[in-house]
Design a protein around this nucleic acid. Structure first.
Length: 107
DNA sequence: GATTTGACTACTA
DNA sequence: GTAGTAGCCAAAT
């Protein structure tokens, strides 16, 4: 639907992230056609706090939990990822490529 | 309507 | 391999 704003699009894709998988801001942005607007995805996540968007599955290109500071507690994001079978060490996802989920590859 | 910000990415030194 | 800078676009003030 074209009545959706940029945020809605991000939310939709983020909700499509399968369990135990992660993706990067740039990948989502590119899928939305806003390649280069990776920051916008992060901004959208800022408002996805109250949504059903698994923002903890969205990390930067390095697999680093840069947005973990925006979550509640301190290691909540890491805990959620580890709970899904993703190994996280020092706020960084291990085997990031292995857990990487490309929306364009699935959609 | 212009300025600032922001959970990024890529390039360069 | 690490560090710093620039480019990016959309929303909030």
């Amino acid at each position: 639907m074209s009545n959706e704003g940029f945020f809605e699009k991000v939310y939709r894709v983020a909700k499509l992230i399968p369990h135990g998988r992660v993706t990067s801001y740039g990948a989502i942005a590119k899928h939305l056609g806003a390649a280069g607007s990776a920051r916008m995805v992060g901004w959208a996540m800022n408002g996805s706090n109250n949504k059903d968007v698994p923002a903890h599955r969205v990390v930067n290109r390095n697999g680093l939990l840069t947005g973990k500071h925006h979550f509640q507690g301190t290691n909540l994001m890491q805990q959620l990822l580890e709970s899904e079978g993703i190994l996280v060490v020092d706020n960084k996802i291990q085997n990031f490529e292995k857990h990487f989920w490309d929306p364009k590859n699935e959609l």
